[in-house]
């Protein structure tokens, strides 16, 4: 049986080194390129006819668009409008990364913590900059809520600070863990199907069910990542 973590192995397809930095085009990069190509193809080709009554594809594209638009409006409010393109891009990038990873023999870039951490850190830094630009030093009130007794400051401030600082980690680890564990589970159970021969029908049935579950998790985790970014953005814009 193949090693279940082998599927996460990065393979450099086109080795590239610029100024001593390794920027090789890997299987991960290939999937990212495929993902954004499919995203663009899906979102532009589906609305090509600009039908008043949408067809199947157009209606799917509209559903995604309105779903994210509503998410931004409900969680950030009208001021979130200018961040809608970013949030929508983030959602589609994660969603397609998660879903393409479920295609056999492909690769899941969202199962790599460094990718998730790169996105989460971008959001974290961006949100913090927006917070300070909007509220100046008043943004530091984030770490000491209004109405709390001053005596609790020595406890509250470190707690709030740690919870704020841990945002990019919790964001990236949540997605990484979900994707990694799901794919390892699929691989291990897939190994049982082969190993058990005829009796492999049992793990195969289980595998089918797990695959459906994984599709749900793929969508759900993309949603969770995106909505948490919306909530952080809302915190920075309106404070709490």
């Amino acid at each position: 049986m193949a090693n279940p973590v082998e599927q996460f192995q990065i393979e450099p397809l086109v080795p590239l080194h610029v100024g001593g930095v390794n920027i090789s085009f890997t299987n991960s990069a290939l999937l990212m390129v495929i993902s954004i190509s499919l995203t663009m193809a899906f979102l532009t080709l589906s609305v090509r006819s600009r039908a008043l009554v949408p067809g199947r594809w157009q209606s799917m594209a509209e559903v995604f668009y309105e779903f994210v638009a509503n998410m931004v409006r409900d969680n950030v409010g009208s001021e979130g409008r200018k961040f809608f393109p970013f949030i929508f891009t983030l959602f589609m990038f994660l969603l397609f990364g998660d879903l393409l990873g479920l295609v056999p023999y492909s690769f899941t870039y969202t199962s790599h913590i460094i990718v998730n951490f790169g996105l989460a850190l971008t959001v974290f830094v961006g949100v913090t900059i927006i917070g300070f630009m909007r509220h100046g030093t008043h943004y530091l009130r984030m770490f000491f809520p209004h109405g709390a007794p001053i005596l609790t400051a020595p406890i509250l401030i470190p707690i709030e600070l740690i919870s704020y600082m841990s945002r990019p980690f919790s964001l990236s680890i949540r997605l990484f863990a979900n994707m990694t564990v799901g794919h390892i589970m699929l691989k291990v159970i897939g190994g049982f199907v082969i190993a058990l021969g005829v009796l492999g029908i049992l793990p195969f049935a289980f595998l089918s069910a797990i695959t459906v579950l994984e599709f749900g998790i793929a969508i759900l985790q993309a949603y969770v990542f995106t909505i948490l970014c919306c909530i952080y953005l809302n915190d920075a814009i309106h404070m709490h």
């Binding site: 890997t26 991960s28 663009m40 393109p85």
Partner: peptide, 22 residues
């Protein structure tokens, strides 16, 4: 070993997607 190339291609693809999307 593969942190740098992944981050680089993440940046490239994400920025391209952002521009195309918006």
């Amino acid at each position: 070993t593969f942190f740098a190339p992944q981050l680089f291609w993440l940046l490239v693809t994400f920025v391209v997607l952002y521009i195309l999307m918006s």
